[in-house]
Simulated scan of single mutants.
Amino acid sequence: MKSVVVALGLMAWAAAAGAADHRVVIEGMAFTPKVVAVQPGDTITWVNKDIFVHNVTAAAAGIKSGDLKPGQSWRHTVRRGVSFDYLCSLHPVMTGRVEVEAEGKALRPARPRSTS
């Protein structure tokens, strides 16, 4: 019961703070959208719609979803204002980025990153 109260409290805090929910679809060996612009407190849900098992791994940010079978999803709430790159450790060619803006700042489109 205590965990339910805590969860409801966190949901109420997020709603009051104007937190947003974002969705990244894993399909066709890719993350879509490739770049997600968020603010601290926002939640990102990765949904595996592919036929293969995938994961979301960002070692620098300490994020590891575990393996997501087709049809499974995983949620992460962004706590800090630090942007990070992530990948599927099973298929390292699959990459994405979370651009975290400071609270209250207008979100700007992500700048293209050089691949050279």
Rank of each mutant, 00 (worst) to 15 (best):
M1K: 06
M1D: 13
V4N: 08
V5N: 05
A7W: 04
L8D: 03
L10P: 06
A12Y: 07
A12N: 03
W13M: 15
W13F: 15
G18F: 02
A20H: 07
A20Y: 03
D21C: 04
D21M: 11
H22K: 14
V24I: 14
V25A: 10
E27Y: 07
G28F: 09
F31Y: 15
F31A: 04
K34Q: 09
V38D: 00
V38S: 00
V38P: 00
Q39K: 07
P40V: 10
T43L: 04
T43H: 01
I44P: 00
I44N: 00
V47E: 15
V47A: 09
N48V: 04
N48P: 04
K49Y: 03
D50K: 02
D50S: 13
D50I: 05
I51W: 01
F52G: 03
V53K: 13
H54Q: 10
H54I: 07
V56W: 04
T57S: 10
A58V: 08
A59G: 05
A60C: 03
A61V: 06
K64F: 15
K64A: 13
K64D: 11
L68T: 05
L68Q: 05
K69P: 01
K69R: 14
K69C: 04
Q72T: 05
S73M: 09
W74E: 05
W74C: 11
R75E: 12
R75F: 05
V78Y: 00
V78P: 00
V78N: 00
R80L: 08
G81K: 12
S83K: 01
S83N: 09
F84S: 08
F84N: 07
Y86F: 15
L87N: 10
C88G: 08
C88S: 09
P92V: 02
P92G: 04
V93N: 14
V93P: 07
V93G: 10
M94V: 14
G96K: 01
G96C: 07
G96R: 01
R97Q: 11
E103M: 13
G104M: 00
A106M: 08
A106S: 10
R108A: 15
R108D: 11
R108M: 13
P109W: 01
S114F: 07
S116M: 09
